[in-house]
Simulated scan of single mutants.
Amino acid sequence: MTDAMVRQASLWQDAVRLLLLINAAAKPVGGDSEAPIDAVGVVHTQVRLQKLDFWVRYPDYLANELLNEYQANPDSPGLLDEAERILSSQEPDLRRFPMLRHRFGAFEQLDNALSVLVEKGLARKHDRLGEKRVIQHNYYLLEKGQATAGGLLAEAPSLAWYSERTNTVVALVDGLGGSHIKDRQYLQREYAATPIGSYIPPITEQARRRLTAIRATLPAQPSVGELIR
């Protein structure tokens, strides 16, 4: 995938996606002494935020992960249905915004989009310092950011997709830290095999074939006529 072929999001799109993702992923600040006084939630670590963002930006990888989760928990048919909704639509192509693979997986600088949120008083970033370097980035959702996220969805229904997908991604790995999510993403061969500095390729057709194979193993559903006999 060359740079000329890569679909890039606008700064506004990046900022909106990041706000809705932080809004979905933020946990209560609790007794966090570093939290701004108007913080209503926090996402701990840049790794976690980057890895969640990857699945929002690559719907085919998200669908494939839903298939993994379904096969581990076959009593949860909603996972299979959600994967099918994604893969049977144009979403994997229309919603994909490619990311480069870096040393620790998918990565893109968040500073430009985050600066928009900070300037508007919607979010705040705090760098926790060690002896020689930053050891953790924390992303705080502010009261105005939470209100704005809800207002955006009310004013622009077309943004509902972002809310749905960010919530799906967060629910998929609820309770897992960024490093665990990173390790999980590396289990996908195409992701792990992407050369450092190259864009991670899509896996849409592979995921669709996998969905078809899984569906073929399930008992046939009765027709409407059979149900009313």
Rank of each mutant, 00 (worst) to 15 (best):
M1F: 06
M1E: 13
D3V: 05
R7S: 07
L11Q: 12
W12T: 09
W12M: 09
W12S: 10
L21G: 01
A24E: 14
A26Q: 13
K27Q: 15
G31Y: 10
G31M: 10
G31F: 08
E34Y: 07
G41L: 09
H44S: 08
Q46D: 14
R48K: 14
L49S: 04
Q50A: 02
L52I: 02
D53C: 01
F54K: 03
R57T: 03
Y58V: 01
D60N: 02
Y61A: 06
A63Y: 06
N64T: 04
E65D: 09
L66V: 06
L67I: 12
N68S: 06
E69W: 00
Q71A: 04
Q71N: 09
S76M: 13
G78Q: 13
E82R: 15
R85A: 02
I86T: 07
L87F: 05
L94R: 12
F97L: 07
D111I: 11
N112V: 02
L114S: 06
K120D: 11
G121D: 13
A123N: 04
K125M: 14
H126R: 14
R128H: 10
L129D: 09
L129W: 13
V134P: 02
I135V: 15
I135P: 03
N138R: 15
N138F: 00
Y139C: 08
Y140W: 12
L142Y: 03
E143I: 01
K144R: 13
A147G: 02
E155S: 12
A156K: 01
S158N: 08
Y162F: 06
T166L: 07
T168D: 14
L172F: 02
V173S: 11
H180Y: 04
D183L: 10
A192N: 08
A193W: 13
T194P: 03
G197T: 11
S198L: 07
Y199N: 05
E205G: 00
A207V: 10
R208Q: 14
R209C: 01
R210P: 04
R215C: 00
A216K: 11
Q221P: 00
S223L: 15
V224F: 14
